[in-house]
């Protein structure tokens, strides 16, 4: 799996334009773009409430994510951003439509996929040390104890945490806890990383530090990343492509390509005129009221 990625850069651009074209291809074809890491085809999701009312959250959402691409999903609050991410992660079967990971249909969480949740205080187990938390996903891989320990300390070093394996998560600050959650994802050695509002619960300074950390880790580990966020600056700053969702029931409203290059810098990138323009484009798309026909 990893070998195929080294051959990607040349085909990556093609894959991305294909992905763009496939945006509204719909679910009926049943064919899978072989170049995509993740494909969402006509995914919809409805819930039946306690009173028996059927509520549609997702209405036929389709998009592709190319290998090593960074996609940000934004949308008005109340849009089914998290629902969509849970469908991508294989945590929730869609009512209709399909999700593919590396060309195979997703029915359970894929093994080459890692997740980072917003709520680090709940996604890290308070009764386990930092090291035990980081090595928890490695148990299914049946690796030797020493290998698990090594992967854990490497991952903790990669996220800028030192020798804190013996601490408990609640002894650390919020930013450090989210770093541990990221280290756990890294140690799992995934091809793709899904993040649900990963920096929404930390302070502004920590937030920009973590944004840069994720960008550095993406380069280092050549991961595909999909992040759900409500922060438009963050979406544009980090991603190669921003998918703007509409309000409930959710569909893809607009896809914005972010051609800001591979190197991003909090000060330089954010003051580029292109950045400001992209930011305004995305913001306008997010704010457009439901039912507004102007494309």
């Amino acid at each position: 799996m990893r070998d195929t990625r080294t051959a990607q850069p040349a085909s990556q651009h093609i894959a991305r334009t294909q992905a763009g074209r496939l945006q509204n291809a719909g679910a009926s074809t049943g064919l899978v773009d072989s170049g995509a890491r993740m494909s969402v085809r006509g995914v919809s999701k409805s819930y039946t409430t306690d009173r028996g009312v059927v509520k549609q959250v997702l209405a036929s959402v389709s998009f592709d994510v190319a290998p090593e691409e960074f996609v940000a999903i934004v949308g008005p609050s109340g849009a089914g951003k998290t629902t969509l991410l849970r469908a991508l992660a294989g945590l929730m079967p869609p009512t209709s439509g399909e999700v593919y990971f590396d060309g195979s249909p997703v029915t359970a969480p894929p093994e080459r996929l890692a997740l980072v949740f917003q709520d680090y205080s709940r996604s890290l187990m308070p009764w386990m040390t930092v090291e035990k938390n980081v090595t928890l996903p490695l148990r299914r891989k049946k690796l030797a104890k020493e290998v698990q320990k090594r992967l854990s300390s490497e991952a903790l070093a990669a996220v800028g945490l030192g020798d804190i394996g013996t601490h408990y998560p609640w002894q650390l600050s919020g930013g450090m806890q989210q770093r541990v959650a990221i280290a756990r994802a890294i140690a799992y050695q995934p091809d793709a990383l899904l993040m649900d509002e990963p920096f929404a619960s930390v302070d502004a300074q920590t937030r920009s530090d973590l944004e840069d950390l994720i960008l550095a880790l993406k380069k280092q580990y050549r991961m595909t990343i999909v992040v759900v966020t409500h922060d438009i600056d963050e979406a544009v700053y980090m991603s190669d492509r921003v998918i703007v969702l509409s309000g409930s029931p959710t569909s893809v409203r607009q896809v914005v390509d972010v051609a800001l290059g591979t190197h991003r810098d909090q000060l330089v990138t954010k003051s580029l005129p292109e950045f400001v323009e992209l930011r305004n484009t995305v913001l306008t798309a997010v704010r457009r009221p439901v039912g507004d026909p102007t494309a």
């Binding site: 849970r86 992660a89 294989g90 945590l91 359970a108 969480p109 093994e111 996929l113 890692a114 997740l115 949740f117 709520d119 709940r122 996604s123 187990m125 009764w127 386990m128 928890l136 996903p137 148990r139 299914r140 799992y188």
Partner: peptide
């Protein structure tokens, strides 16, 4: 969220009992 974390990382049910449900 803890349950979803265990699901997302494919933790086997024996380990779920040991590291999630019992604690």
């Amino acid at each position: 969220v803890a349950r979803e974390t265990f699901s997302a990382y494919g933790v086997r049910w024996r380990d779920r009992v040991r590291f999630l449900y019992l604690p």
